[in-house]
Design a protein around this nucleic acid. Structure first.
Length: 602
DNA sequence: ATAGGGTTAG
C-alpha cells in the first residue's frame, strides 16, 4: 500500500482541498478485514448493484472509495465503471490525481480503447481543467514516461477530435516540455484541426517541432502539412516539404501532388496555372499516376482562371490517360461555362453527362441556375429549380440563395421574399447569406430603413449579422450620402467582434470620396494601416477616383506612383479611371508608359 | 484508419 498517497493531502490546481483523506484512513484501519471489504465492494461494482453499494457510503464517502479502490490496485475496468457511475449518478468530480491514476492503471493493463473513450468524455465534460494542471497531475502520480506518453498522446487526440485546437496545441507543447513522446496519429489529428481552423503559423510550428522531437512522420502527416502550407499560399514552402519527405524516404503519392496542384490553382500568383501544370508533369515523371481528383483540380483551376480552352484540353488529356470523368469533373466545366455565360454549352455538357449515366447533383443545378440567373433568364432558372425536385433531389440553401439573390438584383423583392417563405415550407433553413441577399435587395431599392429592420430581427431567427451584412449596410448608407452613419456601423461591427475586411474599408472610403471628403478617406486609410491591413489595389482605385473627381490630378498621379512602388498591380478599373478621368482632362499620368507596357490596349 | 477536387451573398 503506497502510504504516501494514502496520507496525501493538498490542493488541486483549482484550489479544491481534497477532503476525505483522513476519513479514508480511518475507515481503512477500522475495517476488520480491508481486503475482504474491498472484495465485497468490487463484486458489487462488477454486478452493478449500485443501491447496495450506496449503503457503504455511510462509513466511506464515495470519493474516498475511489481512492481506496485505486490504492488497492483493483481491476482497472471496475474502477473505471465506478468512476463513471459516480460521476454520472452522484454528480461527483474526482480530483485530477485520481483521474490520472485511473488512466495510468488502464494504460498499464493496455485498455487503450477504454482510455480513449474516457479521455474523449473527459475533454468534452471537464475541459475546465487547465492543461498544465493535467500534466502536473499525470507526472506526480506516476513516473513511467512510457505510460504517461500514452495518456498524454491520447489527450492530444481527444482535444483534436473535440475541435479544441488551443488546448490540443498547449498539450502538444507541454508534452515536449515533459519529454513525453507523441504518436503520428495524434499529431496528424492536431495538424488537421489546425489546418481546418486556418491556424497556419501553428501548423508550421507543429511541423517543425515534430521534426525537432523526432516524432515519427508518415505520408499522411506530410500531406496535411503540405495542404496547410498551400491553403496559406506558401507554395514554395510546400514544395520544399515534398523535398523533405523524399529525403526521409517517404514518397509523395497522388494526394500529395494533387494538393500542391490545388494550391497553385487557388493561391498561386503570376503563371500559377503554368506551375500547376508543371506539378502534374513532375508527378508523372515520378511515376505517380494522376487520378480523377487530380484532373478535376486542374480543370477547375483553368475554369476559374477563365481559360476554358485549357480546361477542355485537360478534360481530353484525362480521357487519353484512361481516367473517367465523374460528376465533379462535369460540375467544374459546367460552372466554368456558366460563369462565362456559355449556357447552351453548359446544358449540352449536362446532357452529355446524363447520357453517360452520370446523374447531375444539386451542385450541377446550382451552377446552371446561377448561370441563367446572371443572364436574367429567371424563368429558365426556375425550370431548372423544378428539375431538382423532379430528379428526386432536394434544393439546398445555396440553390435558394442563388435565386433569391437574382430576384433581389432584378428588383423583384416580393418574389424574393416569397422564395424565402417557400424554403421555410420545405424545411430548408435560411442562413445569413439568404438575409444578406434580401438586405442587399432592399438597400438597392433605397429601402435602407427596412434593411436595417430586418438586420435587427436576425437574432430572433438565431442568426447574426456577419461581415457581409455590415459591408452591404455600410455601402447602402454611403450611397445615401450618410457616410458618418456608415462609420458608426464600422465601429459597431468591431464591437461585436467582427473584423472589417478590405471591402469594408474600401466601401466606406468610397463613401467619403463620393461626398468629396478626401480628408476622411485618407484618415480611414491610416486607420486601416493601423489595423495592419495593407491597402489593396481596390483601395487605391477608390482614392484615385476620389482625387480625380475633385480635379486633384496631381494627387491622383502621386497615388498611382505610390501603388506601383508598393508592388501593387493596376487592374482594369485603374486603367478605366485613368483613361476617363485623367487622360480626358488632358493630364498625362506618370503611369502612361506603364499602361502601354502592361495592358497594350490603350 | 488520420490526407486531396465541384455550388451562394459584400
Amino acid at each position: 500500500m503506497p502510504l504516501k498517497i494514502l496520507f496525501f493531502s493538498g490542493k488541486s490546481p483549482l484550489g479544491i482541498v481534497f477532503s476525505g483523506n483522513k476519513q479514508g484512513l480511518r475507515s481503512f484501519c477500522s475495517a476488520n478485514s480491508t481486503a475482504e471489504n474491498m472484495h465485497n465492494i468490487t463484486e458489487l461494482i462488477r454486478n452493478q448493484h449500485w443501491s447496495k453499494l450506496r449503503t457503504h457510503f455511510s462509513s466511506t464517502s464515495p470519493k474516498t472509495l475511489l481512492q481506496q479502490l485505486i490504492n488497492s490496485e483493483a481491476d482497472p475496468d471496475l474502477v473505471l465503471r465506478y468512476f463513471n457511475w459516480s460521476t454520472k449518478e452522484l454528480k461527483l468530480f474526482h480530483p485530477l490525481e485520481l483521474t490520472c491514476r485511473l488512466l495510468q492503471s488502464l494504460a498499464a493493463a493496455k485498455k487503450y480503447s477504454k482510455m480513449r473513450n474516457f479521455l474523449h468524455r473527459f475533454v468534452q465534460n471537464e475541459s475546465f481543467h487547465s492543461v498544465p494542471s493535467i500534466f502536473h497531475a499525470v507526472s506526480v502520480s506516476n513516473d513511467s514516461l512510457c505510460i504517461n506518453s500514452i495518456i498524454v498522446d491520447m489527450l492530444v487526440l481527444a482535444y483534436a477530435k473535440n475541435m479544441k485546437h488551443n488546448l490540443g496545441l498547449e498539450a502538444f507543447k507541454r508534452a515536449g516540455d515533459y519529454g513525453l513522446k507523441l504518436s503520428a496519429l495524434s499529431c496528424n489529428q492536431l495538424l488537421s484541426l489546425l489546418v481546418k481552423k486556418e491556424k497556419f503559423e501553428e501548423v508550421e510550428y507543429v511541423y517543425k517541432e515534430m521534426r525537432r522531437r523526432r516524432i515519427e512522420f508518415n505520408l499522411i502527416s506530410f500531406n496535411i502539412v503540405i495542404n496547410g502550407l498551400c491553403k496559406f499560399g506558401k507554395l514554395n514552402k510546400a514544395s520544399d516539404v515534398i523535398d523533405d519527405m523524399k529525403l526521409l524516404g517517404i514518397s509523395p503519392n497522388s494526394i500529395t501532388y494533387t494538393t500542391l496542384i490545388d494550391g497553385y490553382c487557388k493561391k498561386g500568383k503570376i503563371g500559377k496555372m503554368y506551375k500547376a501544370d508543371a506539378v502534374l508533369k513532375d508527378m508523372v515523371e515520378n511515376g505517380i499516376q494522376p487520378n480523377e481528383r487530380t484532373f478535376n483540380t486542374l480543370i477547375d483551376g483553368f475554369c476559374k482562371d477563365k481559360n476554358l480552352p485549357a480546361a477542355m484540353k485537360v478534360f481530353e488529356e484525362m480521357k487519353s490517360h484512361g481516367v473517367t470523368a465523374g460528376v465533379v469533373t462535369y460540375n467544374s466545366l459546367i460552372n466554368g461555362l456558366c460563369v462565362h455565360g456559355q449556357l447552351d454549352e453548359a446544358i449540352a455538357l449536362r446532357d452529355e453527362m446524363m447520357g453517360l449515366g452520370l446523374m447531375p447533383n444539386v451542385i450541377t443545378y446550382n451552377a446552371l441556375i446561377k448561370g441563367f440567373c446572371e443572364k436574367k433568364m429567371l424563368d429558365k432558372a426556375r425550370e431548372l429549380f423544378d428539375d431538382i425536385s423532379k430528379q428526386g433531389m432536394v434544393p439546398t440553401v445555396i440553390t435558394y440563395n442563388t435565386l433569391i439573390n437574382a430576384y433581389c438584383k432584378d428588383g423583384k423583392m416580393e418574389d424574393a421574399f416569397a422564395w424565402r417563405d417557400s424554403m421555410l415550407d420545405r424545411a430548408v433553413l435560411p442562413d445569413i447569406s439568404t438575409y444578406n441577399c434580401l438586405i442587399g435587395g432592399l438597400c438597392s431599392k433605397g429601402n435602407v430603413e427596412e434593411a436595417r429592420k430586418i438586420t435587427n430581427e436576425l437574432r430572433n431567427k438565431h442568426l447574426r449579422a456577419d461581415l457581409v451584412t455590415y459591408n452591404i449596410l455600410i455601402g447602402a448608407l454611403c450611397k445615401e450620402g450618410e457616410s458618418k452613419n456608415a462609420a458608426k456601423l464600422l465601429d459597431e461591427m468591431v464591437k461585436v467582434g467582427l473584423s472589417p475586411s478590405h471591402v469594408t474599408y474600401n466601401t466606406l472610403m468610397d463613401g467619403y470620396c463620393g461626398e468629396g471628403n478626401l480628408v476622411a478617406a485618407l484618415n480611414l486609410r491610416k486607420q486601416m494601416e493601423k489595423e495592419k491591413m495593407r491597402p489593396n489595389i481596390a483601395t487605391y482605385n477608390v482614392l484615385i477616383r476620389g482625387f480625380c473627381q475633385k480635379g486633384k490630378l496631381q494627387g491622383a498621379n502621386g497615388l498611382l506612383n505610390e501603388l506601383l512602388e508598393k508592388g501593387l498591380i493596376p487592374n482594369q478599373t485603374t486603367y478605366e479611371i485613368v483613361r476617363e478621368e485623367m487622360m480626358e482632362k488632358g493630364f498625362v499620368p506618370d503611369i502612361e508608359g506603364h499602361l502601354y507596357n502592361v495592358s497594350g490596349t490603350l
